[in-house]
């Protein structure tokens, strides 16, 4: 077997760095040198703060870093904003608009960055879509096939908090909005009760995905610096291993 042409074995989760399922047949991503790291979690867990600190740390070490978010594509942003403003969105179109947005960013930002050897830090990833769809009762197999064109990240960190902390943090920061309160689910007229039920269901969905997608779960109730240290420790370990040339590794 000619092992020199094979990419290094991922450290965990055999799909890391590859498409989840059928993928995009016209875009081969084999042997791309970049790394994809996703930071997942609900609102109010401090994802953007952690990503800002990680970027700084990585760049000091000489790694090229690109950040990507959820629903920020040039193509779809205006449409999603308009659609969320009107109430004609239903769960299917909601899911499909976000998937289109993701496809646009995947092909235009993420894949080119991985090809060029960047570390891509993703503020939320497809798990956000899976969790939101799960709460809305979208068929699990269907949405997993839909996102089968996604690339499995090399690392997924899930910043976890409990329901009570989550609610307080969201209220303190931006407050409750229609969608983040799951008002489309008509769980009740009381926006607080709806918000609480929705966020609780979201946490449950995230929890159920931890094993399926190999989340590295971090307790997000700790201090920013403590969480950052933990992230750096794990990422450093991964990068050290990934940098080892394939030929040196013993099978």
């Amino acid at each position: 077997m000619n092992s020199s042409t094979n990419p290094p074995e991922p450290t965990e989760g055999s799909r890391a760095g590859h498409y989840y399922s059928y993928g995009i047949p016209y875009l081969s991503i084999d042997n791309y040198p970049g790394k994809l790291i996703a930071i997942e979690g609900t609102d109010g867990v401090g994802r953007s703060t952690q990503i800002r600190l990680l970027r700084e740390w990585l760049e000091i070490q000489g790694y090229g870093v690109i950040e990507t978010g959820w629903t920020r594509s040039e193509l779809m942003q205006p449409t999603i904003e308009v659609a969320k403003g009107s109430n004609t969105l239903n769960k299917l179109t909601f899911v499909l608009l976000y998937a289109t947005d993701f496809a646009d960013r995947l092909e235009k930002e993420i894949i080119p960055a991985l090809k060029a050897g960047f570390i891509v830090l993703s503020d939320r990833y497809i798990f956000t879509a899976l969790a939101r769809a799960g709460v809305r009762g979208v068929d699990r197999a269907w949405i997993r096939n839909l996102y089968g064109f996604g690339i499995a990240p090399h690392l997924v960190f899930y910043l976890r908090i409990d329901e009570k902390t989550l609610i307080r943090r969201v209220l303190q920061s931006r407050g409750m909005d229609y969608w983040e309160s799951g008002m489309d689910l008509k769980l009740g007229d009381d926006i607080y009760e709806s918000f609480r039920a929705y966020q609780k269901a979201l946490l449950k969905e995230y929890g159920s995905m931890a094993d399926e997608f190999g989340f590295r779960v971090l307790d997000a109730r700790r201090k920013v610096e403590v969480i950052q240290d933990e992230l750096r420790r794990q990422i450093a370990g991964f990068l050290a291993e990934a940098d080892v040339p394939a030929a040196v590794r013993t099978e």
């Binding site: 995009i24 016209y26 239903n90 179109t93 289109t100 496809a103 646009d104 092909e107």
Partner: peptide, 15 residues
């Protein structure tokens, strides 16, 4: 792209 073309049409269809 072929993917976003496909997904936009699927969104239209779902609607």
């Amino acid at each position: 792209t072929p993917m976003t073309f496909s997904l936009l049409h699927a969104t239209d269809f779902a609607d």
